[in-house]
Every structure is written in C-alpha cells, then in structure tokens.
Simulated scan of single mutants.
Amino acid sequence: MSWNDFRRRQQAIQTVLDDASRNPSEALTHVPAPFLDATDALRALQYKWTQQLTGRIGVALAETDDTPHADRVQAVTAAWRRTAEANPVLRDLLDRHESDPVLRSDMAREHRLLAVAAGLAEHTEPVDDVARVGRAFRQLVRITPEPSPQCIGGRLRKLIPSF
C-alpha cells in the first residue's frame, strides 16, 4: 500500500465517521472509495479501533509494571474506557454492527486481548474460553460505573470459575 493509498483510506474512514456522527442510522449506507462495500469499511473501522485499543493497553500495562501493587484489570479497564471516550462515534458504530458476522473473528480477537492483558486468562488456554472471559470482562467494563474498576475485577473473579 502506498502513502497515497493509506491517506485515501484514512480520509474514507473519516468520511464514514463524519457521516455516522451526523446520522448514525444511515452510517455505512454510502461507503466512499477506496472501500468496496460496507463490509470492507467495517473491517477498516474495527482495525482502527483495535490499533488504538492495543496501543493504550500497551501503555497502561507498561505503567502498571512500573507501579508496585498495580492492578492489571484496572489498567486494562481504564485503557478500554479511554479508547472509547476518545472515539465515541467509532465505538457507537462498531456497537451497532457488533452482531455482524464479518466482525465475529475480530471481536473474538479483541476479547482474547482483553482477557490476557487483564491477567484473567493465559494465551495457552483454549481460545474459546479466553474469548468468553474477555467478552464477560468487556461487558462488565461497559455496564459498571466509571470509578469502580475494582468492582469489575471482583465480579469477574466470581464469574471465572463458572467458565
């Protein structure tokens, strides 16, 4: 991919996000070039989210490693929330299409990332189990009030034996 191609894709992604910001229910009905269709654009949007989330998780875990008694669950929770706060239209658009089969493997990958990064699962465990733990973690992050990451960890630790 050339720099021109990269810039065109970035501009197209921004166009999709601008359209979604103005009219969320109509998002992805008119997909700009160079995207071939809504599926292609949706994958690019998920990739954008994953890049930003992965970067924030990496920074959060590096800071956690430097802090005695730091909590990985709290660090990953904060990283997910910061990413969502920095990208509300992107997060909303992905949430609206979460059940789309095209995102199934990307969502499972994100769930596994969250579970392993938070220290709730190991990468050597069965991938479906790790994804289930990550999905539960993400759901708790989304429904738990902001200032309470310890609550998320406590709830997850109660759930994990049931997986």
Rank of each mutant, 00 (worst) to 15 (best):
L140V: 00
G55A: 11
T29W: 04
G119D: 04
R56T: 12
L28W: 06
V73I: 15
R96W: 01
A60I: 09
A78P: 00
R81M: 12
A118F: 04
P149E: 04
D19C: 01
T124W: 08
R132W: 00
Q74V: 05
L17D: 07
G58T: 12
P147A: 07
W49A: 11
T54Y: 09
E122Q: 09
L113A: 03
Q74N: 08
D95A: 13
D37Q: 09
G134L: 03
V31I: 11
M107V: 08
P161V: 00
P126T: 04
L156H: 00
N23D: 15
R22Y: 10
E110G: 01
L103Y: 02
L93S: 02
W3M: 01
G153V: 00
G119S: 02
L45H: 05
E85N: 10
E146S: 04
L93C: 03
H123W: 13
A118Y: 05
S21N: 13
V116T: 15
A86Q: 14
S25M: 12
R82H: 14
A20M: 14
V59E: 14
D18L: 13
G119N: 03
A108Q: 14
E98F: 09
L61P: 07
M1I: 03
R9M: 02
T64C: 14
D5T: 06
R91E: 12
H97C: 02
T83S: 12
R155M: 09
T124Q: 11
A136H: 06
L61D: 09
Q10T: 08
R43V: 13
V73K: 04
A20W: 14
A84I: 13
G119Q: 03
L90H: 08
A131F: 04
A27D: 09
Q150E: 11
P145N: 13
A44P: 08
T83A: 11
S162T: 11
D19N: 13
W49L: 10
N87Y: 09
H97I: 03
A62S: 14
P147Y: 03
R8D: 14
R56P: 05
A115T: 06
P24T: 07
V59D: 13
G119F: 02
H111Q: 15
A131M: 04
Q51F: 06
E122Y: 04
T29Y: 08
E122G: 06
R138W: 05
A44Q: 10
P68W: 01
D129S: 06
P149L: 02
V73H: 06
D128V: 01
V133P: 00
S2I: 06
T144E: 07
P68C: 01
W3H: 05
D18N: 14
D106P: 00
W3N: 01
A44T: 03
A108K: 10
V141Y: 07
A131S: 10
L28D: 05
Q51T: 12
K48L: 15
A62C: 04
L45I: 07
V59L: 12
S99I: 01
K158T: 03
T67D: 09
S25F: 09
H111C: 11
L17K: 08
Q74S: 15
T29R: 15
I152N: 00
R112P: 02
Q52I: 02
D5S: 05
V102C: 05
R7V: 10
T64K: 05
A121P: 00
T124N: 07
